[in-house]
Design a protein around this nucleic acid. Structure first.
Length: 154
DNA sequence: GCCAACGTTGGC
DNA sequence: GCCAACGTTGGC
């Protein structure tokens, strides 16, 4: 069992969105970075813990908890001509982009980027590293625990 | 809107 | 395989 932090723009898919979806589950479409894709394709397992992070918004930070709900499969948006995520180099026979389903578990109080940065125990979080842009990053058990503590969850 | 940092592309 | 040019991310 592993832990992950997954960024989503709340204007696209927020934690509220995800919770309101059928089975509280959304397909994690639109990842177009190989490293992030490889995490989903090669390392994610059903049941892995996910920190649901809101990015590119007024208050960036961790907004909820979720879990990986499927193994990887081709991102359908890569084949949709009208999609912003269309990839002309991808074909159903030769898909380039994979995704997993993510099931939202609960909304949390907003653990802001500022608050994350202020905690020395969380300094190792990958998203806090200089220049880090990856939309999906692994989270260590210690980091996960630290965040649960801050959220006063188990 | 700015811009630092990083990723991707494509000519050579 | 190098690397300059370009595109993207994402906080501010």
């Amino acid at each position: 069992m592993q832990y992950w932090l997954m960024k989503s723009e709340p204007a696209e898919v927020s934690i509220d969105h995800a919770l309101a979806a059928k089975d509280s589950t959304v397909a994690w479409t639109g990842v177009r970075n190989y490293q992030a894709r490889n995490f989903m394709r090669d390392q994610m397992r059903i049941g892995d813990g996910v920190l649901f992070y809101h990015s590119s918004c007024a208050e960036p930070g961790i907004a909820g908890l979720a879990e990986v709900a499927s193994t990887a499969y081709p991102d359908p948006t890569q084949f949709e001509r009208d999609s912003h995520y269309f990839d002309p180099k991808a074909s159903p026979e030769n898909p380039r982009w994979m995704l997993v389903d993510v099931r939202a578990r609960r909304k949390t109080r907003l653990l802001s980027l500022t608050e994350l940065r202020a905690d020395p125990a969380l300094a190792s979080l990958q998203i806090l590293q200089r220049g880090s842009r990856l939309s999906i990053t692994p989270v260590t058990p210690d980091e996960w625990q630290g965040i649960m503590q801050k959220l006063e969850l188990k």
